[in-house]
Design a binder for these strands. Structure first.
Lengths: 225, 225
DNA sequence: CCACTTCTTTAAGGTTTAGTTAAGAGGTAT
DNA sequence: ATACCTCTTAACTAAACCTTAAAGAAGTGG
């Protein structure tokens, strides 16, 4: 699966870096902003999967930012977790009322932070009724089961091969260059040489036959229509 | 859906009334008890959908009450949320170990209380969606009795192994990653390392054979279809 | 048809992930 | 108290997977 992006908004640089470090270690992509205004601008530009928002900030405080985001059509469905210096019931209630999805008090335990983030993301994922089953040509790619079916036969591809196939198939017909594939399947900040894509394509062809993924020389690969 | 009933057990009458008021406003039915004993009696009589339990109480304290409930076949699957005067890591851990499902510290924010209650209920609803008796392959998993039957043989799995098996079996075919399993079987706010899942899977395989739970490397586990 | 670029294929090595074992902390039952 | 469970963790092993480099094949443009 492609990496999920988290926007962290906090005016304390040190904390920002600490959180970034921990989130990246968990495999998230991280965006940083140092005040509410900047945060909102960044959210609009990058559509992160979740926003982690400090309440106490200059320029525009966290609560205001929550309000802003909830008013904005583009942003209103992005989950928000608020951070605050100490447990402050009043603010907390206010935050939750304004539309944040969870609330964490400093000092932050990293484990707790990560698990809350994942819990919130999962809750949102479950809401989306996206089908995880693709049927193309004579094969079925079932992402719930991680199985590819082809004429009664089951193929259990390793994760990267499966994700690559799934991604190509979900964009059937469109030519995707190697960099795009790397970004979407491997993740934005992961550096691997682009030949890696070729090798995976080869493995897929080896298993399923070569009539599914087409090479477009000089550009990339395409799942045949 | 019919109204869900919540049993609130607390010796402070004022708080009891306050909570009742707020729960009713949210559309719950409310039962009240003023000590552990009374609470348990009431739980047996009315089978509430959730119990909200103060830890500090005369007669029988909250932790004892949790224990009692977890031992009782009728009551053992009713979710419990504990209330306590202040954050106390030790008691919290103890409470969760004894089998409560969540933990809230006073003073209580109404919003938070409601949202935790709904979260816990949601988790349990998901579990209850399926019948308590699953028949898959040649085994029967009976969650009313906590027994797995396999060709005339009975297997009494420990709680966690059982719940894990049950959860996997109830989502037969779907690959579930470790984090999801931890959250659904162990609970959202409980932090254990994900290798714990592996160990439990191993124990299950050891007892029932390894043809039920499949590993999907890099992703998670799946109950074979 | 030659030179050049881009892809394919192979195989090895390194990394990541899962399996396994054992030990310790708690709890429970005798 | 003692022995026995259950759950969790750490540490080691084993295996699957991913990545890379490099050599050969296939296209492409002059």
């Amino acid at each position: 699966m492609a990496k999920q992006t988290i926007l962290v908004v906090d005016d304390e640089k040190d904390l920002l870096d600490l959180i970034e470090y921990n989130l990246r270690k968990e495999g998230f992509d991280v965006l940083k902003a140092e005040n509410g205004e900047e945060g909102i601008a960044m959210a609009k530009e990058h559509s992160p999967d979740l926003v982690l928002l400090d309440i106490m900030m200059p320029k525009m405080d966290g609560l205001q930012a929550v309000e802003e985001m909830r008013k904005d059509a583009e942003l209103k469905r992005i989950p928000i977790i608020l951070l605050t210096a100490r447990s402050d019931e009043k603010t907390e209630v206010e935050g939750l009322n304004k539309g944040s999805d969870d609330y964490i008090t400093k000092p932050i335990s990293t484990t707790k932070l990560i698990s809350r983030i994942k819990a919130v993301l999962r809750r949102f994922d479950e809401k989306e009724e996206v089908s995880n089953i693709l049927e193309v040509h004579n094969i079925t790619i079932d992402r719930d089961r991680y199985i590819v079916y082809k004429e009664e036969e089951e193929f259990h591809l390793p994760r990267k091969e499966f994700e690559l196939l799934f991604f190509l198939a979900s964009r059937k017909g469109k030519v995707l260059d190697r960099q795009t594939l790397l970004n979407k399947v491997w993740g934005d900040n992961i550096y691997v040489v682009d030949r890696t894509v070729d090798v995976h394509v080869r493995k897929i062809r080896e298993k399923l036959g070569d009539h599914y993924i087409e090479t477009v020389k000089g550009v990339g690969y395409r799942f045949k229509e």
